[in-house]
């Protein structure tokens, strides 16, 4: 086992999970209040780009993270208001947002930095990694958690926080109520739109963090469409975890593991075109297995009902 799972592999697996985990928490929160958010891909991409801009301009990774959160929250206003006050279809809005993020970042990359494809610069300060003494000597788990960014540590802490908020606090109870029966929540004086708007904006903040980790967490580079489907994997993690933060985190860990196995196979000589698809294949298989034991009824099954 430890021949296969090297310290480096575990570390990169944990690192790979972080953005997906944050995006999945964002998706789980939105799902709890009944907004189907599948714009995490775009929210993260905006965050990743803004983080690079902020860090480039200020030479500070912290400022980069702040700018990433602000930009992603601002971008999330589209879904926050579009799906609530304006009563638009969340699926269509999210498709539009993902494309807008892709186009906008590519455009600004050319317009601001005059490059296409990827952008990196010595002026960009990356996130520093927290070293914990003795950690690397614990096999597997310790290898994974040694030398990670504060965002990675924060992401796992947030899993606990989100679970506590959702299941132990009045706000969480109301959020779940808003998601299950908005009309009922409304009659009990809970402002459904406000809960949904705030939640979507919080999801933007989480995805902003995820994006910052993506661009500043390892190699300090922005590449067009660098989210590369992570937002979609997060959407699936929310489905697999049935919206429960702990189960969603477990699903994310599964993908991270698949990713690491792919990397490892690549190290053993398999072409990366094949190993890159590992997380998607695992995802599809997991979805098929988790959904098969449901009762069937031709009427109850509505299209696009996710």
């Amino acid at each position: 086992m430890s021949d296969f799972l090297t310290p480096f592999l575990m570390q990169s697996a944990v690192q790979a999970i972080t953005p997906i985990l944050l995006a999945a928490l964002a998706g789980a929160l939105c799902g709890a209040v009944g907004v189907f958010n599948m714009a995490m891909e775009g929210q993260m991409l905006i965050g990743a780009f803004a983080a690079i801009c902020g860090s480039y301009a200020s030479h500070s990774a912290g400022v980069g993270v702040g700018v990433a959160i602000a930009a992603s929250v601002a971008f999330s206003l589209i879904l926050a208001y579009g799906a609530t006050v304006f009563r638009g279809d969340a699926v269509v809005i999210c498709i539009g947002m993902n494309l807008l993020a892709s186009g906008l970042t590519a455009y600004l990359l050319r317009a601001l930095f005059n490059v296409s494809g990827t952008f990196s610069d010595p002026a960009i300060a990356g996130l520093s990694r927290i070293r914990i003494p003795l950690m690397p000597s614990i096999p597997i788990l310790g290898w994974g958690l040694a030398r990670q960014t504060a965002i990675t540590w924060g992401a796992w802490a947030l899993v606990i926080v989100v679970a506590l908020v959702l299941f132990k606090t009045p706000v969480g109870l109301r959020m779940r109520g808003v998601g299950e029966r908005p009309d009922a929540a409304e009659t009990l004086g809970v402002d459904v739109n406000r809960y949904r708007i705030v939640t979507v904006l919080v999801s933007g903040a989480l995805c902003g963090l995820a994006g910052a980790q993506l661009s500043l967490g390892a190699v300090n580079v922005f590449a067009e469409d660098m989210t590369a489907g992570r937002g979609w994997i997060a959407v699936v993690a929310v489905m697999l975890g049935r919206g429960h933060p702990l189960y969603c985190a477990a699903a994310c860990a599964l993908f991270g593991f698949a990713d690491a196995v792919g990397l490892r196979l690549q190290g053993l000589g398999l072409p990366n075109q094949l190993t890159d698809i590992a997380p998607y294949v695992v995802t599809l298989a997991a979805l098929a297995i988790s959904h098969r034991a449901r009762n069937s009824n031709a009427l109850g099954k509505a299209d696009r009902d996710v």
């Binding site: 589209i78 208001y81 579009g82 304006f86 009563r87 638009g88 279809d89 699926v91 269509v92 809005i93 498709i95 539009g96 947002m97 494309l99 807008l100 892709s102 186009g103 906008l104 590519a106 455009y107 050319r110």
Partner: peptide, 22 residues
């Protein structure tokens, strides 16, 4: 790539304003 931005703004505006695909 500006044209991609223009297209997505059209879709977003209609999705938000006109209940596109509602």
């Amino acid at each position: 790539v500006l044209t991609l931005v223009l297209q997505s703004i059209v879709i977003l505006f209609l999705a938000v304003r006109g209940g596109l695909g509602k």
